[in-house]
């Protein structure tokens, strides 16, 4: 009983919170690579989207004239937004399997489950961005800006998808199972990503839709990415700041709600 080896080692609670988030992140990433089919298809999907939109819609008139340059920042944001669904699915699965029950009875940080889930999903999103940049370059995407602005654009949309993940965490913790969590996510994601500036210029949309499409947060993230990645006619000095404000605002709303859902789940 007094075995030194199994006595908890000393540490601060903040230190433990980081260590626990790291452990849960590691566990979630292992799970991802353990299911090669899921890995394959979640890699294939963004590639397929790039190819489909690039060639099927290439004749859509857009400002600047090059549809691929218009499309790529949009498809980055769209794919990252859809990636946030995995946050809700992952949490719903853990809740369903009973693993969260075990976690709650452990002396680990209360932040670890949500922090670990969202961190793992951010890691996956970084991988997706790198992959899609590669595919985009192959099909004619030509970012005009400098690498630093490109990186900045990536960070802005990663932060935006991160703020969405906390919203989807709430869905995952409220849904009765993983399938339902996924179904519940789509009615939110489709209007947000398609009634936006991601694929089509909102100026061409019916007027009742245009107001929404121009001002909603997905469009702000897309406009910010387009301004920083491609620049030129897409230059928009305010969009990066507006997108940043949206992300922070969403986090301020979603994080406490998600934490509360986790406590009550």
């Amino acid at each position: 009983m007094t075995d030194l080896a199994t006595k908890p080692s000393a540490g601060t609670s903040i230190g433990w919170a980081f260590s626990d988030i790291k452990t849960v992140t590691w566990r979630n990433l292992i799970r991802t690579v353990r299911v090669p089919e899921a890995m394959f298809f979640s890699t294939l999907q963004p590639i397929m989207f790039v190819l489909l939109f690039r060639y099927v819609f290439s004749s859509i008139p857009v400002p600047g004239g090059s549809y691929v340059n218009y499309l790529m920042p949009g498809i980055f944001v769209q794919t990252l937004c859809f990636g946030a669904v995995s946050t809700s699915i992952g949490l719903a699965e853990d809740l369903q399997s009973g693993l969260l029950e075990r976690f709650r009875a452990l002396p680990m940080s209360r932040a670890a489950v949500l922090g670990g889930r969202t961190s793992a999903d951010v890691v996956r999103n970084v991988f997706v961005i790198i992959l899609m940049t590669g595919v985009g370059l192959l099909v004619g995407f030509r970012p005009q800006s400098n690498p630093l602005d490109y990186l900045l654009a990536c960070l802005i949309i990663l932060l935006f998808s991160y703020s969405l993940m906390w919203g989807f965490a709430i869905i995952g913790l409220k849904a009765p199972n993983a399938e339902t969590a996924q179904l519940m996510s789509f009615p939110i994601l489709f209007p947000l990503t398609f009634a936006s500036s991601a694929f089509v210029n909102p100026a061409t949309m019916p007027s009742w839709l245009r107001g929404f499409a121009e001002n909603q947060p997905v469009s702000q993230a897309v406009d910010a990415a387009r301004s920083l990645m491609v620049g030129g006619v897409y230059h928009n000095a305010s969009a990066p700041w507006v997108s940043l404000a949206w992300s922070i605002g969403l986090l301020i709303v979603f994080v406490p709600l998600a934490v509360r859902s986790y406590r009550n789940a």
């Binding site: 199994t6 908890p8 080692s9 540490g11 626990d20 452990l106």
Partner: peptide
């Protein structure tokens, strides 16, 4: 994983 989350010595 459980060992780490129980904060056993590394």
């Amino acid at each position: 994983m459980v060992g780490k989350l129980c904060h056993l010595k590394r």
